[in-house]
Design a protein around this nucleic acid. Structure first.
Ligand SMILES: [Mn+2]
Ligand SMILES: [Mn+2]
Ligand SMILES: [Mn+2]
Ligand SMILES: [Mn+2]
Lengths: 223, 223
DNA sequence: GATTTGACTTTGACTACTCAAAGTATACAC
DNA sequence: GTGTATACTTTGAGTAGTCAAAGTCAAATC
């Protein structure tokens, strides 16, 4: 049974591999250390031991990559994390801005049996409250092609699909302006030189976002 | 924040203090070590460090006792444990024989916020699936005076209040014969010399128990 | 009162994880 | 090409928790 620590390293490694939109061959130690919240030296020694367990491939000074076994474990942790998040929102009524932190602990404590009960209770959902895909119990999650809100032209009508940031303040802002996953909206204006995009959710007042914020909102263009 | 390990030591210490029906002044190291599942030497060194943190009073070779601060923490862990057990049975539909083990992990992972959501969802219950009292968020649980099934005379009518054993096999047996907390029954016969007691639950076939088993079932006499 | 026994404590060693600080390799600049 | 910055690795040390085995105390037995 992998420790809590190992599970977190693998999960963050997976997210970093996918995060860089390119095929993302190798992950740099620095990035991993920052993601897990340890010093670079700590990450180096942990990665060496993950490598000894064949959970990652490690080339000193080049980078780390999950093996097939490591990826499988990472996906199991991610599945637990995201199902728990949805459960906390749906069943216990927590706010979507606070469930990430809760799930960070619970993802290591829950058994397969409880997880499958939750999955059934929620009706086998395939995305979490932030629009992130919930990996199936075996295999990989399907990655939908999404557009950053950034790249939308004026008059486009689209639907929010995914919000790629766990900061409570950002999530609360998004919620307040009705841009949670599923929300439909129309782009009113887009001024790249002013770094601003204005959108009108179908049942709210228009809101203007800078590109840093707009880049975190992934949308699906269409009716 | 106390570690998972510290929480478990304190919780078991509390249960051992109350477990011995006498005022149970001091707990012996051996008993604590067995309860927590470590060697005696490990328990000794842990108890010394708990003593340094003023969570227990420790007299070498005499025994250990929780301080007020230690008792408070132990009760918080116990509250989490028992609310989680009830939640798992009530909301997720797990069997009462398997929730103890699950709660053993979850009791260390759940936040106060989630705990209070669960408490509210369940309607502020005061006993868990096994009939064990759920400590209130502050203060001590009220101890009801209960009789071991052992001590019931023939023709007594009583109600099961609490089942004091977490063994899945025993719990499944109890459930199968309809002796879960809340169940009414009548004592058909009691033969101390044969070490046996026969009871008839009001909606089941009679069942005969040895005194070891009957001693674990606590009842409330009367209709 | 001396001896045996069982419970307890101490010691030494190990695993897992962590950091600060010192050392090294690589890439980028000039 | 030499120099320097940056990222990375290594080293040394510390905390938390654990066990096996050796040592000690005290109560029970004789
Ligand atoms: Mn985590
Ligand atoms: Mn999420
Ligand atoms: Mn526990
Ligand atoms: Mn219980």
């Amino acid at each position: 049974m992998p420790s809590r620590t190992v599970e977190d390293y693998l999960k963050h490694l997976y997210l970093l591999e996918k995060g860089g939109q390119t095929p993302a061959s190798q992950v740099a130690m620095g990035g991993l250390a920052a993601a897990v919240g340890v010093t670079a030296g700590t990450a180096t020694s942990m990665v060496k031991s993950l490598s000894d367990s064949d959970l990652v491939d490690y080339e000193p000074r080049a980078g780390v990559r999950l093996t097939r076994a490591g990826t499988k474990l990472a996906l199991q942790v991610l599945r637990r994390h995201r199902l728990i998040e949805l459960f906390l929102v749906q069943t216990l009524g927590l706010d979507w801005s606070e469930v990430h932190e809760e799930a960070e602990e619970l993802e290591h404590a829950i058994s397969d049996k409880v997880l499958e009960k939750i999955d059934t209770l929620l009706g086998h959902p395939d995305t979490d409250p932030h629009g992130d895909p919930i990996p199936p119990s075996t295999g990989s999650p399907k990655q939908e092609k999404l557009t950053p809100l950034n790249d939308c032209a004026p008059n486009t009508t689209a639907k929010v699909a995914r919000v790629r940031d766990q900061e409570p303040e950002f999530l609360q802002f998004v919620d307040k302006h009705g841009l949670t996953p599923g929300a439909q909206f129309t782009v009113e204006s887009h001024t790249p030189s002013a770094d601003a995009i204005t959108v009108r959710p179908h049942d709210r007042e228009p809101v203007t976002l800078g590109s840093a914020a707009a880049g975190k909102i992934m949308v699906k263009v269409g009716r």
